[in-house]
Amino acid sequence: MGTDDAAGLGIQVAYAAGTLTVTLTGEVDLDSVAGLHQAMEEAHAPWGTRVVIDLSGVAFMDSAGIHALLTCYELAQDRGGSLSVTGAHGVVERVLHLSGTLTLFRPPPPGGTRPGLN
């Protein structure tokens, strides 16, 4: 399943074995929030799903993109799951680093939750 939002963000979702992989291409910004949420909803993944956002196809993101990712993080948590980010590189990795969210979006250790988060 794939969609393209107005700002040119491509969203592909795939569910397998408790993990929902959301692969993004293009640019993540403030306009991406609705599309991202819709894609996560429509995947009908079960309670407790681990969401992995793959950013390897994203070349540009600013702080509004960080906010979009944080809203997805909250959505995943509200459904008893977790969210992590993979494949960030270049500007995107730098923006994640500068926003202080790298640790937050790191994959949880196998079989455990991160300390300090509820």
Binding site: S63, I66, H97, L98, S99, G100, T101, L104
Partner: peptide
């Protein structure tokens, strides 16, 4: 304290000292 913001830049003499004030920020 840096809350998810681009790091401060240090200008010493006529140059920016690269990364001098870059630390891991806390969340926004």
């Amino acid at each position: 304290i840096n809350c998810g913001h681009p790091p401060p830049l240090l200008l010493r003499g006529h140059h920016i000292v690269s990364g001098a004030l870059e630390r891991t920020p806390v969340l926004p």
